[in-house]
Design a protein around this nucleic acid. Structure first.
Lengths: 385, 385
DNA sequence: TTGTACGCGTTATCAT
DNA sequence: ATGATAACGCGTACAA
């Protein structure tokens, strides 16, 4: 019975006024004890008489009392919450429409291009959330998930910083000056992207080691010697790291180390197709033999190559082995299935939280820059099986 | 220079003490104004002299001041945050291991059964998060994502309730008494599952209409008359709603309305296969003709049927049309691709937030029970194209 | 074992 | 246009 009798007595009906939530004082009064006793019962600290405790617990249950995190956070100077700031990636156009309700059912002939598919799923940010939430849960912390959407991204980020004990920011989601501003208040961990200049913690994916292990596998296990790297968009940290791994592998294998990628795309499937057509034209013009393997900067690029190669009658991996990077679903269902390096997105989220916790526990610790190890998934496109 | 000179003066080195974040008082002092003026500048309310404003803004930037959400929440009696409570579904075993870092790279021969795939993605909860975050963003609210994990789920839920203005709870994630308890403090919206008994808002998927429209399509567009329903686990709200839609369609079409589903599975692919084998045995025993269409309670079940039917040389949809429900990825990549009803998971998240906001704006509003409309995706397995 | 009182950072009210 | 001050709900010393 939290509904104030006053309202009913006054005949206000059927209006149910917003009842103010019970406070620790209400509980104390109802249990006939002081607020400190209630506090002790709730927090489990200090000694409380068993009978008194029961009395208090009864009052708590009856009133549906829940301690205010605002008040707790104010006195404790910590909120017990971490913030996770994600980029606004993915086709969110269909989200912009007003939410629909009611019984209208759309009948859609899906020719494979229907909009509205899961965008987070394919872009993995959901996985970062999952990993971060789990690590935070282990530490008894909550996570606020925030997507940095252009118009008011800065103001929102500042607001978020006021709500949390630490902030995880995916690289490129916020302007540098905003990151610097909020870093005055809470520790910030940057995720992915380039190693940050300032004094921030950073966690990334071990791009280089992933490609290196993959290339060494191609050469050692499959005896391929003419391995070529198909780059992604120039200047991106991912592309740089992956090409570095490629060169490291070639060096370690005693093979010629290229100064530049054999081909350069932009991470897109369409460009992968275009590059593939160019390669085939050269090959058919007799200007160059087909390489033994194409190591692509990402799965989309590799799938673009696969589209063209199989359409043109080439055997993958017989004529040319093909590998990607990311571990997207399309590479699991292609034929042949795509050998790739899996992006450890849950691992990124978890590690970011762990790094943040370390900084929270002791801010004097030196800033960290950690890489999450990857897994190389060997499937048919490289000749495995 | 937020670092207190005192520490350096005392020769404490290299210890960098945790600097207390700047408060509104620090800003006021630095700008030579009162806290009230700073508050006015930050919140944008009231009149502030342009010069004074500049002074304050300068101090804010220099100190990296960010207002405390705890303090704001305390006085405003609202946190500006919503809570989203999700079930602990999905194989999270690999999350239990400690997070790895360093340069160890695993080489895994992926025979299609490798663990560690995206579990949220396939289970859609990531989509609910996405939809909820978006709707909250539109309303200027934050979202705390919390997975209710068994050991301390109740205590965590109560804690969460203390941090938010409203709670979205996916059906079945919390015991009823916990939901009732926290509902004393904040409005609660239940998502999916059965229509709640108590006075909670509820949003669900329009299971019935989805199946109804699908069945009417099968009959009207493809001329199929012998349509049979393959149920999921008995007693589940989804199964009940979908079978209800099936019956409604048959009734509307003037076809015989079955009292019970023709077959009953449990939403799993394995059981779908088993049921399919049973059906084939009956058919080959001459005991029954093949139906014109099998309307399955979900995609997994339908894919189980598809596995067996195609393996046994049946033509789908030629010999028998097949449909599912959910819109999982497997149905988009199967062959033939599976006609299905798409689960509007982002829509669920959005609608839940909108309902919560309505309740927050006026608690006296009657409780709502809304259904998110679905989309029927016509693909080859029902004979489209 | 229990109660009293202060302060956490902010906003709103009132006075200037 | 600006400043002083009283809440907001809770934890925690300290007193009893």
């Amino acid at each position: 019975m939290t509904r104030p009798r006053g309202a009913a007595a006054r005949g206000v009906f059927p209006a149910v006024p917003a009842v103010r939530a019970a406070t620790i004082r209400d509980v104390a009064k109802r249990a006939g004890v002081s607020v400190s006793t209630v506090s002790r019962v709730v927090s489990g600290t200090g000694y409380v008489n068993a009978d008194t405790r029961r009395l208090v617990e009864k009052a708590i249950a009856e009133l549906g009392y829940v301690p205010s995190a605002s008040a707790r956070g104010l006195v404790a100077r910590r909120t017990g919450t971490l913030g996770l700031c994600l980029p606004d990636a993915g086709p969110a156009a269909h989200l912009r429409e007003p939410a629909r309700t009611g019984s209208g059912v759309e009948l859609i002939t899906d020719d494979g291009t229907a909009p509205g598919g899961p965008a987070w799923g394919s872009l993995y940010f959901g996985e970062v959330v999952r990993g971060a939430e789990f690590a935070a849960w282990q530490a008894g912390l909550s996570v606020i998930v925030a997507v940095a959407r252009p118009p008011e991204a800065e103001a929102r980020a500042r607001d978020l910083a006021g709500r949390v004990d630490g902030l995880i920011v995916v690289a490129g989601t916020l302007p540098d000056d905003v990151v610097e501003h909020v870093a005055h208040r809470v520790p910030v961990v940057l995720v992915a992207g380039p190693r940050p200049a300032g004094g921030y913690d950073h966690v990334g994916v071990d791009n280089a080691r992933g490609v290196q292990v993959l290339v060494e596998h191609l050469v050692r296990a499959h005896g391929i010697r003419d391995v070529r790297y198909v780059a992604g968009r120039a200047g991106t940290p991912d592309d740089i790291g992956r090409f570095r791994g490629f060169r490291a592998a070639m060096r370690a294998l005693g093979l010629p180390v290229p100064a530049e990628p054999a081909l350069r795309g932009d991470f897109s499937r369409a460009t992968g197709r275009r590059l593939a057509r160019g390669l085939l034209a050269e090959h058919r013009g007799g200007r160059s033999p087909m390489p033994g393997a194409l190591v692509c900067a990402n799965d989309e690029t590799a799938l673009g190559f696969l589209d063209v190669l199989t359409a043109e009658g080439f055997d993958v991996p017989g004529d040319v082995a093909l590998t990607g990077f990311d571990g997207i679903d399309g590479g699991r269902t292609s034929s042949p299935r795509l050998t790739t390096v899996e992006q450890p997105m849950t691992g990124l989220g978890r590690l970011a939280v762990d790094v943040l916790r370390a900084c929270l526990a002791d801010p004097r610790l030196p800033r960290q820059d950690l890489l999450v190890p990857v897994r190389v998934l060997l499937r048919e496109s490289c000749g495995t099986h």
